[in-house]
Structure formats: structure tokens, C-alpha cells
Design a protein around this nucleic acid. Structure first.
Length: 268
DNA sequence: AATCGTACCAACCGCTGCTAG
DNA sequence: ACTAGCAGCGGTTGGTACGAT
């Protein structure tokens, strides 16, 4: 059966889990994470699935270093909003709250470190040492303080919705290659960026494999037959029978899709 | 070449807020 | 009005990469 081991997996995600999660999210949407975690057979909590999706797998994610513009924006927003990372993230398409939080922490540490150094230098008789930690020096210092006054930053308002809401920003620039993660876990397995994975998921081959259609996987005829609410009802009503109303035909199609995804993404 | 410190990133945990029943 | 369950948020921690010594 497909239901749910009791043990919950923790720690780093494998590529296989990623593919699986991406596949199911593409199918069912990025809500109902507990449901998703169960139906997908991943031994992860719904919470963990959500986090993985939001912070790593979401197709709209930007990767790589913050641009100077983004850095400036973060400073401005932080001085207004304080540690409201998710709010700040909403103004920065393609960036997650986690990413921004990490960035901020790093900057703060850097700043603290530089200050310490400066002090030591002054103690030791060094005069100059002009440079303050690059960008952070200006208004930021006020921490979370003074609730908003004037000027809203230029970009604000462009994308009020959180980028990781279903159907996030499509036109995110291609992420830089990520050799790192795969090497850690892969052990000789070819690693694909999520961009590549998404491309492949939406490729004609996959689309054709279930009858074509322009709406990624969700658009398949089979999908029309077995809609979310069916599964949902099932899940709510009786966990034991989670999959009951869904026919074997559905599952064989489903397994084929999974196999295809695995073969496509996880083999060299 | 080895060691150490720093930067960065991913993931977990606990709490809060929202919503449906 | 109350409660339980879920989603989301912010804080924190642990691991890896990388540069300096």
C-alpha cells in the first residue's frame, strides 16, 4: 500500500524526493501539505514538504547572490518592517524569507566582526580604517525601529503576492548551475537543476506520454477524471482508504509518470 | 598540506494566526 | 464562542564550501 510509514524522515532531501515532491505538487498544487506528504508517499512531514518546496523547488526561485539592488531593497525594507522576513520577501520576487533572513544574518555578523576588528585596530593605535561594512552602514542601524515614514522603495508593490503562491513567477532568470548539492548526496548520479527538472516535466515527451495538452501535467485527460476533490474527500474521510476511490488505472498511469520522472532526472 | 575561521545555505523547531466545524 | 488542525513565520542550528594562515 502507499500509505505512510509512521517514521518521519528528517535531514537533507535526496533528488528522488525532490522529483517526487515536485511531481505531486505540480499535480495537486502547493496547498494541503499534510495531504501531499501522505499521498506522495514521502516520509516527510507536511511542514517539511512545504519548506522544501518554498525554499528550494519552487520554479520561480531566483538563485545566486543578491544583486546590489536587492541588497538595497532589503536594507530599506528591514529598516521599515524589522524582522518580518516574509513581508520583505514578498517585495523581492524569487527570493524566499529564509534566503533573506540568512543574508541579513550574514551581514549582521560581518558587521559585528568588522566593528570588533576596528576596535582592536584602534586599541592598537591604528587610526584610519574608514570603511564601514559596505551597504549596511546607512539607515539600517536603526534595527527594527521607527515605524514607517516616507518613501516607499521603488520596487515595492510590484508583486504583492508571495512568489511561492501557486503558479509563481514564471520569468525568473535561469539559476546558476548547482553542482554542490548533488555531489554531496548523489554519488555519481547526474544532478539536474530544478530549472532543468521543470523544463523536463513540461517537455513534450512528458506531455505526450499522457495525451498531450498545454497545461503541464495537470491538464491531462486522466487528471480531469480524477480531480483533487476526490482525493481530498477521501483523505478527510478515511485515511485507511486514502486511495480507494481512485482506480488502478489512475495509479498505473501515476506510477508510469513517476518512473518516467525518475528515469529522466535521476539517471545519467 | 593541514588547520582554522568565516560565509553561506538548508532544514528543523516552536509559536502564532487563521479557518472550518 | 470555542476548539482543533493546518499553514505560515521567525529564530536557531548544523553542515559544507572556501579562503586565510
Amino acid at each position: 500500500m502507499r500509505i505512510v510509514g509512521e517514521e518521519v524522515r528528517k535531514g537533507p532531501w535526496t533528488e528522488q524526493e525532490d522529483v517526487q515532491l515536485a511531481f505531486y505538487v505540480n499535480l495537486f498544487g502547493d496547498r494541503r501539505w499534510d495531504f501531499l506528504s501522505k499521498i506522495s508517499g514521502l516520509k516527510r512531514s507536511g511542514k517539511s514538504c512545504r519548506l522544501r518546496w518554498v525554499n528550494y523547488l519552487h520554479p520561480g526561485l531566483k538563485r545566486g547572490k543578491m544583486t546590489p539592488n536587492e541588497e538595497r531593497l532589503i536594507l530599506e525594507l528591514h529598516s521599515k518592517l524589522g524582522n518580518r522576513w516574509s513581508k520583505i520577501a514578498r517585495k523581492l520576487p524569487g527570493r524566499t524569507d529564509n534566503e533573506i533572513k540568512n543574508y541579513w544574518r550574514t551581514q549582521m555578523r560581518k558587521e559585528a566582526h568588522d566593528k570588533k576588528k576596528k576596535k582592536q585596530q584602534q586599541k592598537g593605535g591604528g587610526g584610519g580604517a574608514s570603511s564601514s561594512p559596505s551597504s549596511l552602514s546607512n539607515s539600517s542601524s536603526s534595527s527594527s525601529g521607527s515605524p514607517g515614514e516616507e518613501s516607499t522603495p521603488a520596487v515595492v508593490g510590484a508583486n504583492e503576492r508571495a512568489f511561492y503562491d501557486t503558479g509563481g513567477f514564471v520569468e525568473a532568470p535561469p539559476p546558476p548551475p548547482r553542482a554542490d548539492n548533488g555531489e554531496k548526496m548523489g554519488g555519481g548520479v547526474k544532478v539536474y537543476s530544478m530549472d532543468e527538472i521543470w523544463k523536463a516535466i513540461e517537455s513534450p515527451e512528458i506531455q505526450e506520454s499522457h495525451g498531450g495538452g498545454e497545461r503541464s501535467m495537470i491538464g491531462s485527460a486522466i487528471w480531469d477524471d480524477y480531480s483533487v476533490w476526490t482525493m481530498d474527500y477521501d483523505y478527510q474521510e478515511d485515511e485507511r482508504n486514502l486511495v480507494a476511490p481512485v482506480s488502478d488505472q489512475f495509479y498505473s498511469w501515476f506510477d508510469n509518470q513517476l518512473d518516467f520522472a525518475h528515469n529522466t532526472f535521476l539517471t545519467g
